[in-house]
Amino acid sequence: MASKFGLAGGIPERRVRPIWDAVDSRQYKSALKLCTALLAKHPTSPYALALKALTLERMGKPDEALSVCLEAKELLYSNNIFHFDDLTLSTLQIVFQRLERLDLATSCYEYACTKYPNNLELMMGLFNCYVREYSYVKQQQTALRMYKTVGEERFLLWAVCSIQLQAYFSSGGEKLLAFAEALLKKHISSHSLHEPEALSLYVSILEQQAKYDAALEVLSGDLGSLMGREEDKLRLQGRLLTQACNYVAASEIYQKVLESCPDDWESFLHYLGCLLERDVKLPKPTTGEHTCSSCSVDSNKTSLSEEVVRPPPEAILFYLVLVTCIRFTEITCL
């Protein structure tokens, strides 16, 4: 919990560490005594008050803990505070969250970010507050602000994920997804992508817009090398081809997956689904005359030789499972 300068919330770490150790070991009475002694030397320290509130909440005194948290919040909002760090806010956030008052934690981070607009740690804390409140628009805005501040790929991905959530839970999804795609394209043109998760997110954005050909083109290009395993890339290609209704190509892709991973049950089911969509024809039964004496047919009914026997779907599926199992057993035994 200490900073790189040996300070924790503006207080020397050697005076703070025993409190955390007491809380972690559930010695709350000892922790409260240490907090009282700390406040005697640092009466205007929001961090010391946050530690006391944390201890009171763990002791089962939520009302007292909330009162102390509000006192620390007022100190943070005053102009007399010269040390304003994420450690104090994160400690308060723990207490506010356990007291089911996330709105108070969010307001503290919002105030801190207005006071220190370029502090990355504070912006990350604010983003986490919005995540806990399911505030997708504010998540997006905060993530984009962090991306513009430091230019790191992860913050752009946070923003794109927030846009995806907006598209899923609100109207106007097409415009939002187009905006997310534009953000990623701009980043790719200047910085490319460096993580497999970034590639998966880009493909999912295209997939949500039914741009399956574009997604397949991305996977077959230079960015496709970000996929760690070739089988993962093939599975993704098979899914995209299936959604594009190209069942012939999809079945060929899944066949490659099964040749290298014969125990991949999910790919096996997808493979069977593609075969069924292709209307695989089963061998038709012979239509020769039935000569078995034990199967006599009434003369008033149509003879078996004139009937068209059509197997039920369950029989077709069972047949495909059986044939495919035999086929891949032969492949793995080679």
Rank of each mutant, 00 (worst) to 15 (best):
I11N: 04
I188W: 01
A215Y: 01
S296T: 12
F5M: 14
L275S: 10
H42S: 11
V280T: 15
L34K: 10
K185I: 05
A37P: 05
G151K: 03
D21S: 11
N246M: 08
E252R: 13
R14P: 08
L34Q: 14
A112S: 05
Y202N: 00
P117T: 04
F127E: 03
G173N: 01
S190G: 07
K256R: 15
D85F: 03
L7Y: 09
D264N: 08
L70D: 07
L320Q: 10
V131C: 15
A53Q: 08
V95P: 07
L177W: 00
C325A: 08
Q209C: 01
W265Y: 14
Q139V: 02
C333A: 12
M123T: 04
K29E: 04
G173S: 00
R101N: 12
L240M: 06
C325E: 07
Q243D: 00
L32V: 04
A65N: 06
C292S: 06
L183Y: 02
Q243N: 08
L165M: 11
L223G: 05
R58P: 12
R229G: 15
I19S: 04
E207T: 05
E289F: 06
T36I: 11
A180Q: 03
E307S: 10
K175T: 01
P12I: 02
C292K: 06
L184W: 02
L223I: 04
L157H: 09
T324C: 09
I81N: 12
N119M: 00
Y77L: 13
C292P: 03
M1A: 15
A50W: 05
F179G: 11
V68T: 14
A31F: 00
E153V: 06
E181L: 12
P285M: 02
S90C: 09
M227V: 14
A180I: 03
V321L: 05
E252V: 05
E230D: 15
I163H: 05
L193T: 06
L120F: 03
G9P: 11
F127C: 07
G221S: 12
K148R: 14
L144Y: 00
E110Y: 01
T291D: 05
I205S: 11
K186C: 06
I331V: 15
I205E: 05
L322K: 09
T286H: 12
Q255C: 15
A178Y: 02
L177E: 00
Q139G: 04
L157Q: 09
N80D: 11
C261I: 05
K29L: 03
E195Q: 11
R239T: 13
D21K: 10
R310F: 08
A180W: 02
P313D: 06
R239L: 12
T114V: 07
V248H: 06
M146E: 00
Y212H: 13
S204D: 14
L157S: 09
V160I: 04
S25Y: 03
T91K: 03
V280C: 08
D222S: 15
P117G: 07
Y47A: 07
D298M: 05
E266R: 10
A182W: 02
T142C: 14
Q243K: 14
A105P: 10
D86G: 06
F268V: 02
G172F: 00
R229D: 15
I205N: 10
Y271Q: 11
S220R: 13
K33W: 01
L87T: 10
M124V: 14
W20S: 06
K186A: 08
T291M: 11
R101V: 03
M1C: 12
E74H: 07
H83P: 06
R15P: 01
E110F: 03
H290Q: 13
L272P: 15
